[in-house]
Design a protein around this nucleic acid. Structure first.
Length: 180
DNA sequence: AGGATGATATCC
DNA sequence: GATATCATCCTC
């Protein structure tokens, strides 16, 4: 997808990412999954977003230019992958929460930590430009707007009213959605 | 319901 | 330098 795809409004990008294919060219093979679940983190004003803590070494990627990968380690065990959105400096991103495998993948992909493990994505990919050759997104089968379900985001109860915003999106009936 | 397991932010 | 807190997953 071109840079302008990512620089738009974050909730719009989140919905548009559903159905897109995430591709990782590893040293050994090509791993592909179709995005079926995402969450939008709107920016520094969004109390559920890491960027609400301000510009720190960790959040620098989030405040960087759109179309880059923001990958971090959570609970000391699992990696989560995001796509940076909006113009540089905004601090917004979309968390990829679940994939439907396209071709064989080692392990399950229903959940942000699981999909990173199956796709071979980790902290080394943080800051990587998604318009490159190794990790990128491409258009997938068309998605009807009526297939998109909106729900509150998961695991952000600390964020008060922001936790109740409908910023999690997934494809209706997809078996790989982490929490239907 | 609870434990694993390490980076990060936020205090001293 | 210590400590509380995680945008999770697995097992009981």
């Amino acid at each position: 997808m071109p840079r302008e795809f990512y620089s738009r409004d974050t909730a719009t990008v989140a919905r548009a990412l559903l159905g897109c294919e995430l591709v990782h060219q590893t040293d050994d093979d090509l791993r592909v999954g179709r995005i079926v679940e995402v969450e939008a983190y709107l920016g520094a004003h969004d109390l559920a977003a890491h960027s609400s803590k301000g510009l720190t070494p960790r959040t620098a990627t989030m405040f960087g230019p759109p179309g880059h990968a923001y990958v971090y380690l959570i609970y000391g065990l699992h990696h989560c992958m995001n796509v940076v959105t909006e113009p540089e400096g905004h601090g917004a991103a979309v968390l990829i929460r679940a994939l439907a495998p396209v071709g064989p993948l080692p392990g399950r992909t229903a959940g942000p930590g699981l999909l990173c493990k199956a796709m071979g994505i980790d902290r080394r990919h943080n800051g990587l430009d998604l318009l490159g050759e190794t990790l990128y997104l491409r258009a997938g089968p068309a998605v009807r707007p009526s297939q998109v379900v909106s729900r509150p985001r998961i695991g952000v109860d600390y964020a008060g009213a922001w936790a109740r915003r409908l910023l999690r999106f997934y494809l209706k009936g997809e078996p790989d959605v982490s929490r239907p």
